[in-house]
């Protein structure tokens, strides 16, 4: 009987079935999160705390900043940066520590690969989960910032998908990087990459503050593109240059997804 039952090839799979595999992993994470809901909720507060500490507290000292010849209140300047940064932080948190635990300690992926799920399904499932989680945080953050009066434009709604793109890039690259980690100590390298980006990606002050050479360096980093994109959207400052940010983040994401899929196969299907 089995010899005749030629299995459908990967490409022949109908669309919903192809998505069902990563979705099963998302469902698994959702179930696990129910037992750890407090961690889930806490992810929302970090950027909100930053927003009020920086926007309101520091903002009272700074007053306003000048961006492209316009004076804007500091809180309006810093809110989109916090939104973009939290999209990065959330994605990195989910795709490094959590993934490392599943990869090395709980052997989750090893058992998942005994089922019809493939490395690509694992990458897609884990990253989708990080994005769904990030989506909720971004939306909640935007709501809080808007109510506080820090969001001048309705274009800000597009900041939510923009943050999803930022999350996609960082989750994918973060997960790929995690596959190279040998121990929890290696997680420090993640902080080493994240912290400078958080501080220097035109998050707390405009890019023009830097000398030209450093401006180039900052513009090469992914978070800068995320921050600038989200800021333009929340301020309603739409222009064709934003497509450069989108393209940068799309390539960053594609690279991460490709690398993650390859690495999981290499590590676990030996």
């Amino acid at each position: 009987m089995a010899t005749t039952s030629a299995a459908p090839s990967r490409r022949a799979l109908p669309f919903p079935v192809a998505l069902a595999r990563p979705a099963a992993l998302v469902e698994r994470n959702l179930r696990a999160a129910r037992h750890y809901w407090l961690t889930f909720v806490s992810g929302f507060f970090e950027p909100v705390f930053y927003l009020f500490a920086m926007g309101v507290g520091i903002g009272a000292l700074v007053g306003s900043v000048e961006v492209d010849g316009r004076e804007i209140p500091y809180a309006v300047f810093v809110a989109p940066a916090m939104m973009a940064t939290s999209a990065m932080n959330g994605a990195v948190y989910d795709s490094t520590g959590n993934v490392f635990y599943k990869l090395k300690h709980s052997k989750l992926y090893r058992s998942v690969l005994s089922t019809p799920l493939r490395p690509w399904d694992i990458a897609a499932g884990e990253i989708s989960w990080a994005l769904l989680r990030g989506l909720i945080y971004s939306a909640a953050f935007l709501l809080v910032a808007a109510v506080a009066g820090f969001v001048p434009s309705w274009w800000a709604l597009l900041a939510i998908p923009a943050c999803t793109l930022i999350g996609l890039g960082f989750a994918a690259v973060g997960m790929a990087a995690t596959t190279y980690m040998r121990s929890w100590n290696d997680m420090d390298y993640v902080q080493l990459a994240i912290l400078p980006m958080f501080l220097f990606s035109a998050t707390f002050y405009p890019l023009a503050t830097y000398p030209p050479v450093l401006q180039w360096v900052v513009q090469a980093t992914p978070l800068y593109h995320g921050v600038d994109l989200v800021r333009a959207l929340t301020m309603g400052d739409l222009h064709a240059g934003l497509l450069v940010h989108v393209a940068y983040l799309a390539v960053f994401s594609a690279f991460g997804l490709w690398a993650t899929t390859r690495r999981i196969g290499k590590l676990l299907l030996t």
Binding site: A2, T3, T4, S5, A6, A7, P8, S9, R10, R28, R31, A32, H35, Y36, S106, K107, L108, R110, S111, S114, T115, P116, L117, R118
Partner: peptide, 28 residues
Amino acid sequence: GMDPATHAPAIKARLGVVPQTDALDEEL
């Protein structure tokens, strides 16, 4: 009757695997 190199998901769909270490999902 299938080649694992090309039909892994179809083979796995009909297999039950009990690995050496239990590898249960401890978060569930």
